[in-house]
Design a protein around this nucleic acid. Structure first.
Length: 598
RNA sequence: GGGGUCGUAGUUCAGUUGGUUAGAACGCCGGCCUGUCACGCCGGAGGUCGCGAGUUCGAGUCUCGUCGGCCCCGCCA
């Protein structure tokens, strides 16, 4: 039988949140409202735990206090919405509930309004209820009633508010930029929005407000920021959603150090206010080259050592053919030394071999260094005395250690070993919980060669300025030019990235040329921008932060979906609304669009 | 596009080498109960084993396909 509750709030005004009443308010008349967490019907007395976002309070329905309220409470079920008027009472001492913030008091109900009935919820609204994510997301409104699910969103809000206050204090101005904008080449796949007024033409949703913020600098804004939604039509990951939020920052007349200073102040503030953690400043700085060499990645996790070591010169002429052959072909041999790793089983070593296979490594060589006796290793018998000596010298390996080696082209070696390093770091418990190691990665290469596209592409983006000292290399050896780009990496997560931009149109055209973007294409794609640079663009630079990833780190969330109110599934579907969905043929006709699917 | 993993009651899960009527806990429904707070006690309902083929005397279990959740590779200037 369907239960229908038709009471209205009427002139009732809620006194406070359910989680707030304390002993100091005992005796006061109160109106509370919320959802029914649980009902305990003793036949005579009925207890109801009433919940809102602030917490839970116990309501007592005693027929001797109000027969009418007690009668109504009999009909109440989980997740029904109630308003209750009554007196706050002190609980009898032996019934105090120390688990509850409101556990010393209870509301004695005089009058109750049944404001809405709820269907039986598909899952229990409790923190420790483990529910499949698809069910949680389909009923996200129920999921959000759990403090555990709401907390990351609350923290995210506090984070954004603190950022706004901080930047405001430094004279930054938040300005909105268009969401319906122009598709730009380079970068990720665009989300397109068809134009009705110009059939066959499309807006693109911004991947970032890059050009607009630079144009704001040309406009003399001097210090801009925006917390802004960005869109990239690429496949999802645990830390990637098709729409995500950036903190976008841009400043005029600045050097990288000026940007670092502003951002370090902001990040330390967030950790201090939101986590009570004091981060040391200035943050570490690591050149891209050093990061790649020591960690095999441009986003190293500095919470633990386990650095990569280069054995290329050791194995140049090695009898271990996979090593020497890789070097011969222009590749390298690198490895790492796992202190105390000797007790890994053969099976575990096989698993690690399969693991590096994910990243293209064709194998994983290992050497166990026992406390006494000869090395145990499939390659041991091929290693010369000299090589063994070199390995000892380079690694400092002692009894109980385990050495890993990967030989391949540099890219594969670095991919494989950097991921192996992270994997081992986690698995061997090298990461101390609660530790945060921010580091700026600087001096990125400006360009790299894309084998698939057979042309140079930007490592950061086409508007990044080269290092002044490398400008002379631009014409002859452009791939050796470093840039004024920087990333902020925290515990192995790239949380922000930016650069000092090119502010002179001549240099900008030259860079576009190096990217094989000819004058005509440049004119068509960013003519407006090049023109703007020509009207006195100031030197400027900035940075963009992944707000979602920052919120993940600060809240300890395991997935980006935890810090987004209505996230999409891995197949980019909104499980709540079922978007994307088919549209009315009339809508398509109006837009001049025909689908070509069978 | 590829690899891995999961899908059994509303939820979380169990289900043996393929074998009779698919189980548990919580939730739900009914009854009793005036100090519970994971209330308790008694009783009850609830299943397209994701979907579709195939193998078999017989499929929750095996095979293939497909759909969906999650993780990863590719992709993400």
């Amino acid at each position: 039988m369907e239960r229908i509750f038709a009471d209205q709030l009427g002139d009732w005004k809620r006194t406070c949140y359910c989680g707030e009443p304390r002993r100091s308010s005992v005796g006061q008349e109160m109106v509370l409202a919320g959802w029914v967490q649980r009902r305990r019907d003793h036949g005579g007395l009925i207890f109801i735990d009433l919940r809102d976002r602030s917490g839970v309070i116990q309501i007592v329905f005693n027929p001797e206090v109000s027969a009418d309220a007690h009668e109504k409470a009999k009909q109440v079920r989980s997740e029904d919405v109630l308003g209750v008027r009554g007196y706050l009472a002190e609980r009898p001492p032996d019934t105090v509930n120390p688990e509850l913030a409101t556990g010393e008091v209870e509301l004695s109900a005089r009058e109750v309004k049944l404001l809405n009935a709820s269907q039986v919820p598909p899952f229990l609204i409790e923190d420790d209820a483990e529910v499949n994510e698809n069910t949680r997301l389909k009923y996200r409104y129920l999921d959000l009633r759990r403090p555990q699910s709401l907390a990351p969103l609350m923290l995210r809000y506090q984070m954004c508010k603190a950022i706004r206050d901080y930047l405001d204090g430094l004279g930054f101005v938040e300005i909105e930029t268009p969401v319906l904008t122009k598709s730009t080449p380079e970068g990720a796949r665009d989300y397109l929005v068809p134009s009705r007024i110009y059939p066959g033409k499309f807006y693109a949703l911004p991947q970032s407000p890059q050009l607009f913020k630079q144009i704001l600098m040309v406009g003399g804004l001097d210090r801009y920021f925006q917390i802004v939604r960005c869109f990239r039509d690429e496949d999802l990951r645990a830390d990637r959603q098709p729409e995500f939020t950036q903190l976008d920052v841009e400043m005029s007349f600045v050097r990288p150090e000026d940007v670092f200073q502003v951002i370090e102040g902001m990040i330390t503030l967030l950790f201090r206010d939101l986590k009570g953690i004091e981060l040391a400043t200035p943050f570490a700085r690591l050149s891209w080259k050093e990061a790649m060499s020591k960690y095999g990645t441009d986003k190293p996790d500095l919470r633990f050592g386990l650095e990569l070591m280069d054995f290329s010169s050791t194995f140049q002429e090695s009898e271990v053919k996979v090593f020497s052959a890789a070097i011969e072909k222009g590749g390298m041999v690198k490895g790492l030394c796992v202190s105390g790793g000797e007790n890994l089983s053969r099976r575990e070593l096989d698993e690690l071999t399969a693991f590096v296979g994910n990243y293209g490594a064709k194998g994983l060589a290992w050497i166990k260094v026992p406390l006494r006796g000869p090395w145990q290793s499939p390659i041991a018998k091929f290693l010369s005395e000299k090589e063994q000596g070199e390995i000892r010298r380079l690694t400092g390996a002692k009894g109980g250690d385990l050495l890993f080696f990967v030989a391949d082209e540099a890219r594969v070696v670095h991919e494989a070993l950097s991921n192996l390093r992270l994997h081992l770091g986690e698995r061997l418990g090298l990461i101390r919980p609660g530790e945060y190691s921010p580091v700026w990665i600087i001096d990125f290469p400006l360009l790299e060669y894309d084998e698939k596209e057979r042309r140079r592409v930007s490592v950061h983006h086409p508007f990044t300025a080269p290092l002044d000292e490398d400008l002379p290399l631009l014409a002859e050896e452009p791939l050796r030019v470093r840039s004024k780009a920087y990333d902020l990496v925290l515990n192995g997560v790239e949380i922000g990235g930016g650069s000092i931009r090119i502010h002179q149109v001549t240099l900008q055209r030259q860079i576009l040329g190096l990217l094989d973007i000819g004058p005509e294409e440049a004119q068509e794609k960013f003519g407006f921008f090049l023109e703007a640079l020509g009207f006195g663009a100031p030197p400027h630079g900035g940075i963009a932060f992944g707000i979602d990833r920052l919120a993940m780190i600060l809240s300890g969330a395991g997935s980006i979906r935890d810090v987004i109110a209505f996230p999409k599934s891995q197949r980019a579907v909104c499980l709540l609304t079922d978007a994307p969905s088919a549209v009315d043929p009339k809508q398509l006709k109006e837009l001049g669009i025909k689908t070509v699917l069978d």
